[in-house]
């Protein structure tokens, strides 16, 4: 493990959750990466916004519903989650259609706070510009 270096990592999720394995394997990278104590953000754009859709059911497709795992991100101190507003709009989705991902804020008496920020594309572009490492899945 590497000490004393903190970089800004952004994981960009662009694919729907079950059509391909990108979403599942990207989540595995985020969870493993959390152990390295970097400054981590996760963005969901294009069909990637479907990864955070609440009430997912995979009963008809014989695949594991891994969406509950996103709830663990807060415990892994992955608390900066950005969802592209235009991608939601294009798909007829709103913030209410997404899972309620939260974390406990140590600096605020462990108050439960939402990890999700809905952002527009200009804000996302700025976010990407600030990163040291952008991993796109």
């Amino acid at each position: 493990m590497t000490e004393n270096v903190t970089k800004k990592f952004l994981y960009v999720n662009r694919k729907a959750p079950y059509g391909t394995i990108y979403a599942l394997e990207s989540l595995e990278v985020v969870l493993i990466g959390a152990a390295f104590e970097q400054d981590v953000s996760v963005a969901f754009i294009d069909d990637g916004v479907y990864q955070l859709k609440k009430d997912q059911s995979t009963d008809g497709i014989g695949m594991k519903n891994f969406s509950p795992t996103y709830n663990a991100l807060g415990d892994y101190e992955v608390t900066q989650i950005y969802v592209d507003k235009e991608s939601l709009d294009e798909r007829g989705l709103t913030a209410d259609d997404l899972m309620n991902l939260v974390y406990e804020d140590e600096d605020d008496d462990y108050a439960e706070k939402s990890s999700i920020s809905i952002v527009n594309r200009d804000e996302l572009a700025k976010l990407m510009e600030q990163q040291d490492v952008v991993l796109s899945f």
Binding site: M1, V29, I32, F36, D132, V133
Partner: peptide, 14 residues
């Protein structure tokens, strides 16, 4: 996968 994260940390560009 830690090897990927480490590559991100150690490289100038990933």
């Amino acid at each position: 996968l830690g090897q990927l994260i480490e590559a991100g940390i150690q490289s100038d560009r990933l």
